[in-house]
Every structure is written in C-alpha cells, then in structure tokens.
Amino acid sequence: MELALFVIFGAVAVASAIMVIVSRNAVVSALFLILTFFCLAGLYVLLNAQFIAALQIIVYAGAIMVLFVFVVMLLRTGKEARRGYRLIFQKSMGIIFVVLFLLLLGSITLTVAVTGMRGPYTAEAVRHIGNTQAFASVLFTDYLYPFEIISVLLLAGIIGAVVLAKRKR
C-alpha cells in the first residue's frame, strides 16, 4: 500500500515536473508545478511529516504559486515563440551534464547506505507526542535563533520586493 502510494505520487510528480519544463505556456507550467507540489505533499505525509505537508500546500501551492500565476498574468507573455536554435550547443551541453549529474547521484543513492546518528524521534514517539508538537519543540528550542533570523529575512524580502517593483517616477 505504502509503496503503491509512493509510486503513484512519484510518477505523477515526475510527469508533471517534465510538463512544467516542456510547456510553452507559462500558465500551464505554473499549474503543473502546483500539481507537483501536491504530490510532494503526499510524499511528506507518507514520510510522517504531516506539518510540512500542510506547509507545502499552504505556502508553496498556495502563496508562492499564486504569486507566480499573478506575475505571469501581469506580464502577459503568452506562448513562447519558437525562435530557432539559439545557444543550441550550450543547451545540449547542459542536458548532457545534467544527465551525467543524475547518473552520479543515482549511483550514490542506490549504492551507499545511510549511516548516521539516529535521533530520539522514532515514528512511535512522534505519533505519541503529535507531529506538530514535536516539530515545534525542536524549532522553538534548538532552532530559535534561525527562526527569528528568518523573520528578519522575510521582512527584508518584502521591503526589497516593494522597492524593486515600485514604479519609479
């Protein structure tokens, strides 16, 4: 059952990811990207990370992608025109190297076993405490400083976006 769900989510995620990069229309790409994010959220649930799954849908599929679609609509670029084969050498080189990259990573993931210190949060422990509560107890103790700094980063991002996008008179 779990494997079946993994295969379904994984296959849909890969397929829609491919659609994101091959689609001519930016809106279509955006919609497929949302689909990918939903699949990833499903995978997170499979991995016992319900809180992250919820965030994935709310932040990514919700907030970020809405922003994307909004900008796509705003710029009204329409379909990308076929414009011959500019930079064809560079692009083919890119594909070759990415494939090489994938092969290397794949060989690592399939051959190397994970060795590492195991933490206290086994599946049973997390289920006992509750995922969100366990997550919060880690975030607000050991990672309080990064959490606070992230808030500053977001503020900077907001100000930066406003300053950049503001029409200059």
Binding site: N48, L55, V59, P120, L139, P146, A156
Partner: peptide, 21 residues
C-alpha cells in the same frame, strides 16, 4: 524520517521561508 530526527523538517521549514522571500 529515516534518521528518526526532526532537524530535517526544521530545515525544510527554513527553506520554505527563504523560498518565499
């Protein structure tokens, strides 16, 4: 998940915030 640790999820949380910005 496989290391029984929640640190990875904290990182994802931070990555999402960075991604939003």
């Amino acid at each position: 998940r496989f290391l029984d640790s929640l640190e990875g999820q904290v990182f994802v949380f931070l990555v999402m915030a960075v991604a939003a910005a």
